[in-house]
Design a protein around this nucleic acid. Structure first.
Lengths: 190, 190
DNA sequence: ATCGGATGTTGACACTGTACACAACCTGCC
DNA sequence: GGCAGGTTGTGTACAGTGTCAACATCCGAT
């Protein structure tokens, strides 16, 4: 009840981080539509206007959440890439991409379909590009191959998330494995 | 001013259609976020509650808009498919898909990323499947090939729309042409 | 002519995002 | 110590949203 109680102190301590975490939580719980800035503030035990001291507005907060998502995605891709060589590594990245999307559907949607969302995608992109360029054959340029690979896994993830194609859990990852591998081998001229 | 004036008559005449049209207009103008049911009603010169006589709620109206989008997409795909043969036809469908997405970005997003959105995709899917199955070779099953082809163009469209990849107008269609054609030829074992 | 169902209207409620003015707190200086 | 000033959080307020309930109006069948 006094200033020694951190729970009740006037200043939160690390509101910015807490807001991002709470927003992510609400996002995963009910999708972007069910995410209100006021509710996020409430979850942090803070007034509705407090977030404005750390973010320009709702959109800005969502962008921060998306940015944290891109970091996590990059880590996943890096790990997957390191787990194999050549076409297998490219396929592993594809599976990791789809897996990430399936495990964090709302976050994934926010990252890519968010409003404006200038969040930095370059890191994740670089990991893919490095591997794809190494596999480019006479059929496709390195640029086209990279774009095609990304489109393939991104589209697959999007279709699965939006229930456009009915693949659940394991089945989704299996399909991703088969398709990305077939693509990688074809593209590599194998 | 009297009942003979259709503009001012109590009953609208064909509100349902007018609402869908107005919603589509607002959607294309400002994206899904900037689409309010009240504004749509206002645009139709009708009170805020009138739409509820024709739709269960906002979501239901959006679903109707999405459904009309799927019909338009199916028409585009059918025309593209008829314009060529074999792998070329598959590539043409891919280009048409991306072109549709670029020309109606908000509608495309709504169709695929809308809330729940059980709108019927099967017609558009059937057109793609028919062509893809005919090209299936020893490398990939017909099912995988269809899924891969769809994922490829859907992902490409999504990445372009969300500015994940910077392709404007002509460049987008060119990329779609190159990539889908390369993919179709590879998959066909050419 | 009238009755009933379809269609539209008005008013209200609980929300939302956000602007403005104020309060509490921390930090560096004297 | 005490006191300025900037940072962070609060309260109130406003316009706008989706939706509910009760009421008004109109069209078509009887």
């Amino acid at each position: 009840m006094s200033t020694s109680d951190p729970e009740r102190s006037y200043h939160h301590g690390d509101l910015r981080t807490a807001l991002v975490a709470a927003a992510l939580e609400q996002l995963e719980a009910g999708g972007e539509a069910a995410l209100s800035l006021r509710a996020v503030a409430r979850a942090c035990g803070v007034s509705a206007m407090a977030p404005y001291r750390h973010f320009a507005g709702k959109e800005d907060l969502l962008e921060a959440v998306a940015a944290s998502g891109f970091e996590a995605l990059a880590v996943s891709l890096e790990a997957a890439d390191a787990s194999a060589e050549g076409a297998q590594a490219l396929a592993a990245q594809g599976v990791a991409y789809v897996t990430f999307a399936c495990r964090h559907p709302a976050l994934f949607r926010l990252m890519f379909m968010g409003p404006g969302c200038k969040a930095d995608r370059s890191q994740a992109y670089a990991i893919l590009e490095r591997r794809a360029a190494a596999l480019a054959g006479p059929r496709m340029s390195a640029g086209d191959l990279t774009l095609a690979a990304w489109s393939l896994v991104h589209g697959l993830a999007a279709l699965i998330l939006d229930r456009r194609v009915l693949l659940e859990g394991e089945a989704a990852e299996d399909a991703a494995r088969r398709i990305t591998l077939a693509f990688a081998q074809l593209a590599a001229g194998g």
